[in-house]
Amino acid sequence: MFLRVLSTEYLKLKRTLALWMILVSPLVVVLLQFIVSYKRSGVFLKDGKDIWQMIVTQTVEPWTILLMPLFITLETSLLAGLENADKNWKSLLALPAPRWTIYMSKLAVTITMLLAAHVVLVAATFASAVLLKQIFPGLHFGGMPLHPFAVPMVKVSVAALLGVTIQHWVSLRWQSYTAAMAFGMSVMVISVFAVQSPAIGPWFPWSLPMHAVLKGAAGHNQITLWSLAGATLAALAGCWEFTKREII
């Protein structure tokens, strides 16, 4: 039954802004990175330094700190909005699918969308580097290894899971698009300050992805473990609340 419900959730994405955001959000970051790299290519040409590391940093950091939290907030709100718009909960929950399958399949869709955006981000960054190479054949790219790019992206993806799971619950809990957006924006701003605190940063769910990419931040293993464990607990708690919820 879970797979059947999951397939309906993907069907609902057809022709939605949420689906387009998977392409648009990472491409915005890659475009900004390309502009910066293009402007600074003269320095790298002169010094003969490897520009690839700068491209990776210019992509991963703005995405993790700014665009990804916005992406998560927007996507979870848009997904919840599909059911809130026409008070669809009353008919969806009157179907013979166990409620947990509905909650978990929506969470799975959100996580899949985040991972898809990361794939787009990586692919578009490689494409932008190839383009830069065509424009400035003298630039040194060091063979564009995948490893320094893929590793932080995997860490960011895992570290983001706790924030995604909580935001998912918030979006489904209140039938107000504004409430979910306000919550997402607020925690995003708080996370920028929280990440600077050694006591709070490594525990604040929305600071974890930043810790995964910032130099000198807390241990990555601790972040990964906390995010995975926290996300599992948050998903189970959210699912339990959802199954008990009354639809007025």
Binding site: M1, R4, V5, S7, T8, L11, K12, K14, R15, T16, L82, A85, D86, K87, N88, W89, K90, S91, L92, A94, L95, P96, A97
Partner: peptide
């Protein structure tokens, strides 16, 4: 619920989907 169909107040539909796609959702679940 597999044996009970319902229409509570206004119909709950996904406006961005076609009629067939709207029916495809309960069809898969059922």
């Amino acid at each position: 619920l597999a044996r009970t169909g319902s229409l509570v107040e206004s119909p709950s539909l996904y406006a961005h989907l076609t009629a067939r796609e709207n029916l495809e959702i309960p069809r898969r679940i059922l």
